[in-house]
């Protein structure tokens, strides 16, 4: 078997991401495919603060840090600039967190989709504002604990459901939209490759478990990511040409596991199991997943 020891990693070690961070795995996987001829646009978020501690950087590709809300706008600008300069074969990769994508940067993202820039936007979804201390975002799932969606006598955690960002991206009629997660790295890398080959905007929604914010031991990151797919919590699909009828599920779990197996190891859901078991809430989550999976033909 070929040794990979000589290969240069485009995200250097020495970054300050937590032990077992899913974000680091995802970024490595994406950069391995994108390669050296890539410009990375990075809004504020975990990835930005942990890889660019002054005066050091973990990036071995050109990158630009922008404000929370305008990664997509800056990436659009880079795309236009490259075009004006006649530079070809350079990938523009915007990597935003769920806060910077679902909430704060959404307007810029929507604009980028509408203008049709040749940019691949990867959204690292760890389902809350982890960098600032685990505040809920519109990506936080129903019933999850965060510091701003606490549980208690009158609360079961977040009351609202998660925003279906992938479907919203498809509605923009862009060439390529996909979902991915780190456990299924081959599927993920294939999607990044495909996204980069598109002549126009591509969007990949990546679920990255966060041991710190989701409250699980750091060795379980990949396992939780896999469980998300196996339970149907997160469906891996891709849509080409902006048409929902082209939706293709890329990883089908052999036998779908009950959602409990996904919820149980994460302490952000621990209030569903103790002090007393909230079967009503678990059932509700399970029902939502069953309905969703039926739509996807799982």
């Amino acid at each position: 078997m070929k040794s990979v020891i000589e290969e240069v990693e485009l995200l250097a070690p020495g970054h300050r991401m937590c032990a077992g961070c899913g974000l680091a795995i995802s970024t490595r996987l994406a950069l391995n495919v994108a390669g050296i001829n890539t410009i990375v646009v990075l809004p504020t978020g975990c990835l930005e603060v942990t890889t660019t501690q002054y005066p050091e950087t973990s990036w071995r590709v050109p990158f630009i840090h922008v404000a929370f809300e305008n990664a997509a706008a800056v990436a659009s600008g880079i795309d236009v600039a490259l075009e004006m300069m006649g530079r070809k074969g350079i990938n523009v990769l915007a990597i935003g967190g769920d806060g910077g994508t679902f909430d704060i940067g959404f307007q810029a993202l929507s604009g980028m989709f509408e203008r049709g820039h040749r940019v691949t936007y990867i959204c690292h979804d760890n389902e809350a504002y982890m960098n600032t201390g685990i505040q809920r975002s519109s990506a936080t799932p129903y019933a999850a604990w965060t510091t701003t969606s606490p549980y208690g006598r009158y609360s079961i955690g977040k009351k609202k459901r998660k925003k279906p960002i992938g479907i919203i991206a498809v509605a923009h009629d862009i060439p390529y939209v996909a979902t991915a997660t780190i456990a299924y790295y081959e599927d993920y890398q294939r999607k990044v490759k495909k996204a980069l080959s598109m002549d126009g905007p591509a969007f990949i929604h990546v679920l990255v478990p966060c041991p710190t914010g989701w409250r699980f031991p750091p060795d379980k990151t990949v396992e939780i990511s896999r469980l998300a797919v196996e339970t149907g919590v997160f469906v891996l699909w891709e849509v080409e040409g902006g048409r929902m009828e082209n939706l293709k599920v890329t990883v089908k779990p052999k036998k779908r596991k009950p959602v409990e197996e996904y919820l149980m190891p994460q302490r952000r859901f621990s209030h569903l199991f103790k002090p007393e078991r909230r079967q009503d809430v678990i059932d509700k989550i399970q029902r939502t997943i069953d309905e969703k999976c039926e739509r996807y033909g799982l």
Binding site: A12, P13, G14, H15, R16, A19, T51, P55, T57
Partner: peptide, 16 residues
């Protein structure tokens, strides 16, 4: 300021 690509390798996170 001199910033080298990948200069975070100076920081040995093994100490964590």
């Amino acid at each position: 300021i001199i910033s080298e690509p990948g200069s975070s390798i100076k920081y040995k996170t093994g100490s964590w």
